[in-house]
Nucleic acid binder design. Structure first.
Length: 436
RNA sequence: GGAGAAAUGGCAGAGUGGUCGAAUGCGGCAGUCUUGAAAACUGUUGAGGGUCACACCUCCGGGGGUUCGAAUCCCUCUUUCUCCGCCA
């Protein structure tokens, strides 16, 4: 009988929690309209699937209890030597076995259906998230830094990269393919300087540095929600069934998969530099020009695991931290609070940071800072023991601090002069030159 | 890559077919003693489902199987350790 039962409970990596839906149905339905969704009927289906699951489990439990009793009885009879009576009881268990098999199947089916339904529902937007359908409805909440007046004949970064021999896109195409640039000379050195600078900033803000594997297994992919939906976005190494990471968030957050933390473990603050690999299927046109969108790029990530009471304070803290970096780099930027339609599937609230790319005359996203509340934690089974002795799901957050290519684009374009490109002061000690 | 050994509660570590959710030790928590602390002593201490609360069910690395009954037997996968080989 072992192995037959409760399979579903083990892979019960649901996204939203059913209990929460049961208790907050109306509120959630309303909040999800901000994403342009009407989930009322889905919720009804979810609740009825859950109802069915629980009732068939109750029935099953009863049968199992009966069956356990028989087994104990049989054990006693054998010991006392009453073989005949024992064999008689054995016959009685045959029916029970059949019944329990059926009930188990029924419960698994309900469980499965429940899970499939839950996978379709995204996270509940925070109260502050504006309703909206796309990026045009995002709310600008902050703006800082002066947009520089450019010299005559100012160039976009891909021209500058070529002119000063910093990045060779063609070489990347030759060696690997489009979207895999080769950084060269001062370009490479500048990349290394930025990584070191970002990491140092994060460490001095209290984050612990990690160097993570660049490939993850399937379980980790499920843990942070890349799988099962978005496997097309990750590079897959078939022979070993591993995936190249799309962001450091995946390996870093998955370090805590299945953990039961103590209150005193909070806050958990991690930072790590990794290359990121994204297939970016379906992207095209001017938006993929130069460094705007790549298959491989460098990023320094920050990840926090927090007590639910503290997660929004942590989110604000992360926003302030990224602000601080951009101030030091003296780049003009703005902060958007994403609207429901632009908000990622797993987030309750996201702030996007955009640097103004003067030569392209557009804003480039360089950081995205999000709170996922318990959405990832539920999948990860990441919990903590609260002061009331109960085990609860922790909140997870992450953000980029920062993604390199567009910061580089911003620096090249905004800092260009007639004679070359100046280097932001804070980076000079890291790269060893102040002018290109 | 080859050959062996192992995987049990927060940790260490017993348990080889029935009353084992699991001895014992450490750690944690509560109490006694103490001016306070330590020591000592006493009690308590895994997780999930389910219930108003009980009852009850499930979980001994993952999955599958044998059996009336599995931590214990069989198959398989994963991981760890030891030996050999290879290697920055």
């Amino acid at each position: 009988m072992r192995g037959l039962l409760y399979l579903s409970c083990l892979k019960n990596n649901l996204m939203l929690q059913v209990n929460e839906i049961r208790e907050n149905k109306e509120k959630y339905v309303k909040a999800l309209t901000k994403r342009g969704l009407n989930v009322e009927s889905v919720f009804d289906e979810i609740l009825s699937a859950d109802e069915e699951r629980r009732s068939s489990q109750a029935q099953l439990d009863e049968v199992l209890a009966q069956s356990n009793n028989y087994s104990k009885e049989i054990g006693k009879l054998f010991k006392s030597g009453d073989i005949e009576k024992a064999n008689e009881l054995k016959k009685k268990t045959v029916d029970l076995k059949e019944t329990s098999k059926q009930l188990n199947d029924k419960m698994l089916a309900a469980s499965d259906r429940l899970q499939q339904l839950l996978y379709t529902v995204p996270n509940i937007p925070h109260d502050l998230v504006p309703a909206g359908t796309d990026e045009n409805d995002n709310l600008e909440v902050f703006k800082e830094g002066e947009i520089p007046k450019l010299i005559d004949g100012a160039l976009p970064h891909w021209e500058l990269a070529k002119k000063y021999d910093l990045i060779d896109f063609e070489l990347g195409v030759k060696v690997t393919g489009a979207g895999f640039p080769v950084y060269k000379g001062k370009g490479a050195r500048l990349q290394r300087a930025m990584i070191a600078y970002f990491l140092d900033k994060n460490i001095s803000a209290g984050y612990t540095e990690y160097q993570m594997p660049l490939m993850i297994n399937e379980a980790s992919g499920y843990g942070t929600g890349q799988l099962p939906d978005k496997e097309g976005q990750m590079y897959h190494v078939g022979v070993d069934d591993l995936y190249l990471i799309p962001t450091a968030e995946v390996p870093v957050t998955n370090m805590f998969r299945g953990d039961l933390l103590n209150n005193s473990d909070f806050p958990i603050m991690c930072t790590g530099y990794t290359p990121c690999f994204r297939r970016e299927a379906g992207s095209y046109g001017a938006h993929v020009r130069g460094l705007n969108r790549l298959h491989q790029f460098d990023k320094v990530e920050i990840v926090r695991i927090e007590h639910p009471d503290n997660s929004y304070a942590a989110l604000d803290g992360m926003v302030e931290h990224v602000k601080d970096i951009l101030r030091e780099l003296k780049l003009p930027y703005r902060i958007l609070r994403l609207c429901g339609g632009d908000l990622g599937f797993t987030a309750t609230m996201t702030y996007d940071f955009e640097v103004f790319s003067t030569a392209q005359d557009r804003w480039l996203e360089i950081s995205s800072v999000s709170n996922f509340e318990t959405f990832q934690a539920n999948r990860l089974k990441l919990r903590f023991k609260d002061t009331d002795g109960k085990n609860k799901l922790a909140h997870t957050l992450n953000g980029s601090a920062l993604a390199l290519p567009r910061v580089l684009a911003g620096i090249l374009e905004n800092y260009q002069t007639k004679d070359g490109i100046k280097i932001p002061e804070v980076l000079v000690p890291y790269c060893g030159f102040d002018f290109i």
